[in-house]
Amino acid sequence: MSVISVEHVRKSFSTLEVLQDISFSLNSGEVLSIIGPSGSGKSTLLRCITNLETVDSGTIVIGGDTLVTTGPDGTAVYADKGTITRIRLRVGLVFQNFNLFPHFSVLRNITEAQIHVLKTPRQEATERAYDLLAKMGLGDKAKAYPYQLSGGQQQRVSIARALALRPQVLCFDEPTSALDPELTGEILAVIRELATEHMTMMVVTHEMAFARDISDRVIFMDEGFIVEEGTPKQVFSDTKNERTRRFLSRFGS
């Protein structure tokens, strides 16, 4: 069953077409990696799915509900506010720069949305937060503030924060790009663990080895197009596509 389905999505920033006719779908339990050079539109695609950017035209369906579709005049028609509020929580997003709330403790970073958006009782929200922190290996950091944590720890908190809302899909926007190689390993290990639990995930990444290891499917994007889509083996080892080959050669893989 597809959790996210994207059809013919287009998006441009003034004259620059960032997404040109993007179509793909993400199935439940699947891990999809999106790779490609900077400026290829990978992050914009994630941001359109999480409704941080609006599309110009095309259809995005999340968990069976339509977020946006193309109207009769060819422009995007978004769902009403209530529907958007309801379906946006189905997709969690982990940012490159974590974007934790600096004035909240780690615990409150994770409970705030549970309590105020999902209306989970405080007690239950706190328990869930502690469970998630334990899972992230941060059981002792609940009372700490983000600035007291390393980048890797902050990113794990932000993963916990996203998971706390029990999203159907968890999206990662270059989750390790702000981290040094050692801390990168920490985060990749967490994502890998989530993959073994069959969490549905979409990962925009520059970590090629990781993408090859972890993904069920890989999309290679360039200049707003999906150049190639397939299993890691198809894309990384057996690609016939000249552009893909050229991109991957830089990573020695």
Binding site: T50, N51, L52, T85, R88, L89, V91, G92, L93, F95, N97, N99, L100, F101, E112, A113, H116, V117, R161, A162, L165
Partner: peptide
């Protein structure tokens, strides 16, 4: 930072809650 607003939006906070609490 814009990221604070984006995180609030993705977590489903209302505009009012984002303004008063974040």
């Amino acid at each position: 930072p814009q990221g604070q607003l984006e995180a609030s939006s993705v977590l489903g906070f209302t505009k009012v809650h984002t303004f008063t609490h974040i």
